[in-house]
Design a protein around this nucleic acid. Structure first.
Lengths: 278, 278
DNA sequence: AAATCATTGATTGGTATCCAATCTTGTGAT
DNA sequence: ATCACAAGATTGGATACCAATCAATGATTT
């Protein structure tokens, strides 16, 4: 039972990760207070947490907004992610036992099955999760938290960004990294990790306008079915997952033909126009 | 002008870094509210920020305390720090230009002069700063922030810990790292970084009780001369710096002969008793 | 006397209301 | 059309208050 501001921060984080709250979206205190049915102060505390995580930006006397990282920051985040994962790779290549390698292989296999079954949404989640599992095997909670924070920020970028590269080449990277590491070819594995992220970030096109298609109230509705406790998050995740495929929420690991991209930006300009200036 | 809770969080952070607030110290809302002359709500927001930074721990319905990392966590923090600095080293060995190397050398030289002049306090600060400068040269703000956070947490450990190793060997590590990197001997530089941190952490002895000898009011007094704005921090730093040498707050980079260590722990039990038993 | 249980007090998490400062917006004058 | 200014809205913060929980004390029982 953590504090209410923490659960609200978690819910907002979830909503941002699910691309239901897009970069630049205004997070008004009064509005959120009504949505979550709490006082403004609790909301502000949640927003402080989000800002500390780099997911929101608080401008004095102007309020909080979902963070809108610059291209520069995007590259920095991916550089940091690369650095962390390369470091973890170096540690694992020395210290990881058979059980660890098995877990990694099992995860890759599950993702492969999801892809084979055409379940792109599941494959997407598993693809994300791989990196998390990878870092978890370092058995370093501090590192895990740093990594998780970076990963959350990359999901921000994916709202802001149009992925435009060949996903097929990335699909097997995880498997190959595991292979290389287990064979002790650390240098190659690290290069592959670097290439993996560089390929992702190179495909990004920034300076795109992002038009929120939902008010925060609509965006957050799926997370509020029951009372605001732990179950809320997973419930929200369950409902939000299809949206990751159906609306403008594009995950990098999703195989997404170009025609779908076009339809995404079309629907946006119409409704609420909380969209960003410039 | 950032929010008041931010400046209070900064002040508390400064006080923790200066070892005026020691691990386990209770940070009562009402007490801090009176000290800073603000409402409890602002204090709570500041405490949330500290907790997000890993410097405080908030226990539900019990309040906030200065974090008391376990030995496990201490090792994780140093592992993470090693990983980050090794990664940065790898980047710099490729990309750093002459100006960068010059800056590093200049910094090492300044520290050397401080040591030569017997100004241990300054040498200590410069020794800390070296790591920060090092990471800053990566020109990655995200990485800088992660690193700075880790460094702040290591200062926590130094309150909790008794350093018991040969400082002389560490004294030239910075210089040697720069040398190795500039010569392209990346592997050796990375090993040295690892050894550097391992030596530090190996000397640590945890499970020691830490007795705060000041109430938070006394601990925070130096930071409150003027109004609570930017100047407060540096004023506090100025006043707090000598304490890093005068009392039991031992920084790992300080050159400290063994005989002085004895006298240090002696003086500590008397004056402020931050000195750790064992 | 020691151990357990209950009451009391203090602290936290949170709400509601209020206020000043600032930002945004809409209106009016040029 | 542009600029200045007033009105409204929003934020940052203060104060007062309440419920829940923890801690400590004292009372009760063995």
């Amino acid at each position: 039972m953590s504090s209410r501001s923490q659960t609200i921060a978690d819910t907002l984080t979830r909503a941002i990760i699910d691309h239901r709250l897009v970069p630049g979206c205004k997070l008004g205190e009064r509005e959120l207070a009504e949505i979550f049915d709490v006082s403004r102060i609790v909301v502000r505390q949640a927003l402080i947490r989000l800002a500390d995580d780099g997911l929101a930006q608080i401008e004095r006397n102007r309020g909080a907004f979902v963070a809108r990282p610059s291209m520069q920051e995007a590259m920095e985040i991916y550089d940091a992610l690369t650095l962390v994962e390369q470091g973890v790779a170096a540690q694992l290549s020395d210290r990881l036992g058979p059980a660890g390698w098995a877990e990694l292989r099992q995860h890759v296999e599950r993702q492969r099955q999801a892809v084979a079954a055409g379940n792109d949404a599941l494959a997407d989640v598993l693809g994300q999760e791989f990196h998390t599992v990878f870092v978890r095997l370092s058995r370093n909670k501090v590192m895990q938290e740093i990594h998780a924070q970076l990963v959350r920020r990359t999901t921000l970028l994916r709202s802001l960004i149009s992925a435009d590269f060949d996903y097929c080449n990335l699909l097997d990277d995880h498997s190959r990294v595991v292979d290389l590491l287990e064979k002790g070819r650390l240098k190659q594995a690290m290069d592959l990790i670097d290439t993996h992220h560089r390929t992702v970030v190179r495909g990004y096109i920034m300076d795109r306008e992002v038009f929120p298609e939902m008010t925060p109230a609509e965006a957050l509705a799926p997370y509020l079915d029951g009372k605001a406790d732990g179950a809320t998050i997973s419930a929200g995740l369950r409902q939000a997952k299809p949206s990751g495929n159906g609306d403008g929420a594009v995950h990098a690991h999703v195989h997404l033909p170009n025609k779908d991209r076009a339809s995404t930006s079309r629907a946006s300009t119409k409704k609420t126009n909380r969209g960003l200036p410039t």
